[in-house]
């Protein structure tokens, strides 16, 4: 029986050497070491031996079992490694094929630019204040220091409605008055984003509706130097810290002194190109110290309070930034334009 055991050991080890894959290994394991495997079977037959031979047989049988188990484990590791290698070798894919498309939504470019502007002003302590699109003549003009037939009204081509004294707001400035009425006598720092309307022929360069962001700061200690500092710092955050700015004298009826802020042309770095009309500067926003009459209309005593206001477009800077040649694209709803953002 001991010879049988030795023979079985030799055959099993040979059999194991011949095993080449996981399936054969499993078969070998079951037939050799399993519950009904030959090692178990021969061990059970120990009772057939004379009593004195039994310990020696038992000891040897254990050694064989341990040896075979160890050999099996070594083989199993090798077979797994082999199999993984085989899988890797045959599982190459063409990584250059396109991926499975995911539906990707996008924000309108105006929303994207508006958000960026609002975020920067938000960081600087200016909160969003919104007001209506259809306004009274009073809020759109009169309270902003433009009585009826005032020459300054020429600056805005206005859409009138069939309701007497009701217009589509030509700028977000009426919101300044609304905000002052809501907040006085507390100091104010707000920005007013929204759609504005101007009576203009629609062309590649001009639209009848456009987004504007207006800003207003009112307090007891706000100066033109603060206006310059605040707006330059905004320009630095929007266009990069190194951007140059300049302030040009302008006229708006609701601010005094008034200015326009230009930034160094972002396309030619100030050298002069077609977009900046060879000036090296791009007009970004209009601004100024709130006119004493406007402060008074808002409920603030201009002898005590000062403030500054500014207003900028959204679509025009986007056109410069992205090289958009036709402003009509914005409201076209055309995916061929919108999905580029």
């Amino acid at each position: 029986m001991l010879e049988q055991l030795e023979k079985l050991r030799t055959e099993a080890l040979e059999g194991l050497r011949a095993v080449a894959d996981g399936a054969a290994l499993d078969t070998w394991q079951r037939s050799t070491l399993g519950r009904r495997g030959i090692v178990t079977l021969i061990t059970r037959r120990v009772g057939e031996l004379p009593k004195e031979s039994r310990p020696a047989f038992g000891k040897r049988a254990n050694q064989v079992k341990q040896e075979l188990t160890a050999a099996y484990e070594r083989k199993a590791t090798a077979v797994k490694a082999d199999e993984m290698e085989r899988q890797i070798a045959t599982g190459a894919i063409d990584v250059s094929q396109p991926g499975r498309p995911r539906p990707l939504g996008r924000l309108h470019p105006s929303t994207q630019v508006l958000r960026e502007i609002c975020r920067i002003w938000g960081d600087m302590g200016f909160q969003v204040y919104r007001s209506r699109d259809v306004e009274t003549d009073e809020y759109n003009f009169q309270l902003l220091n433009m009585p009826p037939h005032h020459p300054a009204r020429d600056m805005w081509d206005t859409f009138y409605t069939t309701q007497e004294g009701v217009v589509l707001r030509t700028h977000t400035s009426p919101g300044q008055i609304h905000a002052m009425h809501d907040y006085h006598p507390e100091p104010i720092r707000v920005i007013l984003p929204g759609m504005c309307y101007r009576y203009e022929q629609i062309s590649a360069r001009s639209e009848i509706q456009f987004n504007q962001v207006e800003g207003l700061a009112v307090g007891k200690n706000i100066t033109f130097a603060d206006l310059k500092g605040t707006l330059s710092s905004f320009a630095g955050r929007l266009f990069g810290a190194q951007i140059q700015t300049r302030f040009r004298c302008q006229h708006f009826p609701f601010t005094e002194p008034s200015a326009e802020m230009d930034v160094e042309c972002i396309l030619c770095s100030g050298r002069g190109c077609n977009v900046c009309k060879k000036t090296g500067w791009l007009e970004i926003l209009g601004c100024g110290m709130v006119h004493p009459a406007v402060l008074r209309h808002g409920g603030y005593d201009p002898a005590v309070y000062t403030g500054f206001a500014f207003g900028m477009g959204v679509e025009r800077p986007a056109m410069v930034k992205y090289g958009i040649k036709d402003i009509r694209y914005f409201w076209s709803g055309d995916l061929r334009f919108l999905e580029q953002f």
């Binding site: 909160q127 919104r130 507390e186 104010i188 307090g219 033109f224 130097a225 310059k228 605040t230 300049r246």
Partner: peptide, 21 residues
Amino acid sequence: YGKIPETEMSDPLPPLRANRP
């Protein structure tokens, strides 16, 4: 305008109001 310096507002920051809508 170019000769007027650029300063940071020294006026106190007004109360911050959220705009929920």
